[in-house]
């Protein structure tokens, strides 16, 4: 008797097929995005050199010196490449499911809905972002090894910055302990899941329609959150900066940390709720997909 819900061997086979499909559909795009660091390094360097060059010097026999892209511009390029990745990866890898031929092939492949769902989520939330980040940072490290004049690699720059803020900086230990570091991961998943859902819902112009819907939802939630959180922010202002009730520094710190805790809790609940809603939407879409 075969397990119709989840079978590890079948899931393994399906996940391998899913990876192969992703390579076939998005492999070249991923390579281009990873090498975008190198491309932008060359282009930014070229632009820097052209604009930094003193034309009077060259007319007087001066030599041309290449002005490398600094770490700031390399981080900017990575953010740009990551944005393109978020916009395009889900649509390219899974957007075909709304197409009659590709979608039928997907639906009728003998694997369970749960296996297909888990594989899809693993691809979008882990495999694709990790491959991109590792690939991009590796290329960046190689650039820095070949051209030491360009400065530190992105990874060492980010590590130094965090070290400066958290270890050597003046951020209170109590606050550092309360920061929910996984929030960044939750938010990344949220964006990938949102674009995955968009790829399954919209038949055409998937990325742009998803983006527009995202903008609309963000505007709406920002207004709602502003209304909900404003009293808390006012409280911090009142207690911390104006010390309206004349409390000691220690008392003020306890009040501020309590408010911070509440905001972190709200952030956690918000992230979990939105991610759960997105996962439910993707599951429901897979369940009701028809061709």
């Amino acid at each position: 008797m075969k397990n119709d819900i989840f079978d590890f061997k079948r899931f393994g086979n399906y996940f391998v097929t899913d990876i192969k499909n992703a390579i076939a559909n998005y492999g070249w795009s991923m390579i281009i995005l990873i090498f975008l660091g190198l491309i932008s390094f060359i282009l930014v360097g070229l632009v820097n050199t052209i604009f930094a060059y003193n034309w009077e010097d060259i007319l007087n026999g001066g030599s041309i010196e290449w002005v490398h892209a600094n770490v700031g511009s390399r981080i900017g390029s990575m953010v740009g490449a990551a944005t393109i990745l978020i916009f395009t990866a889900s649509a390219k890898c899974y957007g075909g499911l709304t197409d009659k031929n590709i979608g039928s092939d997907f639906l009728l492949l003998p694997a369970s809905r749960l296996e297909k769902f888990i594989s899809m989520i693993l691809m979008c939330c882990f495999v694709i972002p990790i491959v991109f980040i590792m690939g991009y940072l590796l290329i960046d490290c190689l650039i820095c090894m070949v051209c030491p004049e360009t400065g530190n690699s992105i990874i060492s720059e980010v590590t130094s910055a965090l070290n400066l803020i958290l270890v050597e900086g003046d951020v209170p230990v109590e606050l550092i302990d309360r920061i929910k570091w996984t929030s960044a991961i939750d938010d990344t998943w949220m964006i990938f899941l949102f674009f995955l859902l968009g790829a399954l819902v919209f038949k055409k112009s998937k990325a742009s329609k998803t983006f527009l819907v995202g903008v609309a939802i963000t505007m709406f939630t920002s207004i709602v959150l502003f209304i909900l959180l404003m009293p808390q922010i006012d409280k911090i202002d009142t207690y911390y900066y104006y010390n309206a009730s004349g409390q000691t520094d220690e008392e003020l710190e306890i009040v501020a940390l309590n408010i911070f805790d509440k905001m972190m809790l709200f952030d956690t609940i918000f992230d979990i709720t939105i991610n759960a809603l997105l996962l439910t939407g993707i599951w429901f879409k897979l369940k009701t997909l028809k061709h």
Binding site: K2, R10, S104, L107, L108, L109, P110, A111, S112, R113
Partner: peptide, 11 residues
């Protein structure tokens, strides 16, 4: 669309 059904059919 149970796997045990899909394994027995090809469209």
């Amino acid at each position: 669309r149970q796997p045990s059904f899909l394994e027995n059919i090809f469209y």
